[in-house]
Amino acid sequence: MNEIWQGFLKAVELIISLDPEVMEIAGRSLRISVTSALLASTICIPLGSTIHFYNFRGKRILINLIQTFFSVPTVCIGLFVFVIFSRAGPLGELNILFTPTAMVIGQMILITPVLLGLTISALSGVDKAISDTARSLGASNLQTMLAIIREARYAMMATVIMGFGRAISEVGCALMVGGNIRGFTRIITTAISLETSKGELELSIALGIILLTLALIINTILNRIQQR
């Protein structure tokens, strides 16, 4: 209990003193996770909408597969990205392993099933009468789809929040493809892992509290946008 209290005090101290290393780590965590969430959303929202709006053979199986990948372990994604971008891998020439770029790619792959699945789910939740109403008012197929997406905007925003949350909180993938290099690829979760293994529990708890605070701030901003 004492350690948690000490950790809390340490977190306050680190935040107030704007500790350069902690700020740098926190900033990097935010940059990587926001980038991966935005890029993945840009791909997944249109792709998920396409899957929802069009009927094709194997659609149900595809949706089942997407939902199965919700629970894929982060280290598996890490291993996959590692193999792809390692020197002997098919994209080894790009030489991006152990860089923030590789971490963004890893997180994007990690949150893609969540974003796709929840996008499909959000659109499925829109009353069919919305589509009929839009069409009856003269909307083309594309305009009808956009009307449905607009109706599902709050659920879509929740989807993006969920994706961001999964990205900023993962450690396995970031550790494997980022390498936890100080000043370059170290982010909050990998730093917590390292500090805990060194026995620096106070610092780990402090970083954990900072991570939660960051997530809270981002979610609050997104919720505000959602409520407009």
């Binding site: 009353d127 009468a129 919305i130 009929d132 109403t133 009856s136 008012l137 607009r150």
Partner: peptide, 13 residues
């Protein structure tokens, strides 16, 4: 044409 459905559906706006 324009069609008003039995259950009035309004968009969330």
């Amino acid at each position: 044409m324009a069609f008003v459905l039995q259950k009035p559906v309004v968009f969330n706006m």
